[in-house]
Amino acid sequence: MATGRSLPFHFTPVDGPRQTEAGTNPHAKDTTFVPDTVEALQGRFGGAVLEVFLYAGEHTVYVDRSSVVDVCRFLKEELSYEYLADLGGIDLFTDEDRFEVFYNLVSFSAKKRIRLKIRVPEAEPVAPSITPVFAAANWNERECWDMFGIRFDGHPDLRRMYMPEDFEYHPLRKEFPLLGVPGSLPLPPQAPEAGLTLDPFAAAHGSKPVKSFQEARSDLADQ
């Protein structure tokens, strides 16, 4: 069950769950409470709707990874959820179904918002792309690929979003260190004639900044 899933990272003392607040959240919004939509999804997709989670008046529907495109199309075409507000990945760092992708859909006419989630295993980090249904998912899926390494099947242009293509890691995965992997991103040359630097923390390793009067003249400036 989603609520009881133990997440392996505990940096600080654990505060016990305060589930009593779920129903009376002062910030709960009407828009996110969508039992009708959940029922419609369950009626239509049956087994593909894995579980439903409710906290602070927000419905989250877990759907099967393979049927997410159909679910999105159904929501868009029949329940008027025409706007994709957000899409992102989550690294749960669990053994099975390590990654999650969530979709945040908005219906302007019905004034409703719903969140879908799919689970993606680590062994095969591939999710179907919903760009045929929501074109807005394009960049979000690219970002998800960049940050988590989840590939999106059928995405028209799956490049990295933020990091350069020359970077090999997926930084929002839990095992990626906050300070980065030394040598994974080169620094520019220190002088026009020098080579690239592979060390991202050069100063920490004793490199002194070059004073401008010591610097070799730049050929480029004369050209």
Binding site: P171, L179, G180, V181, L187, P188, P189, A202, A203
Partner: peptide
């Protein structure tokens, strides 16, 4: 990871 820790790492 994304930020150079001071631009004196590559600029005088």
């Amino acid at each position: 990871y994304g930020v150079v820790q001071g631009c004196d790492n590559f600029l005088p």
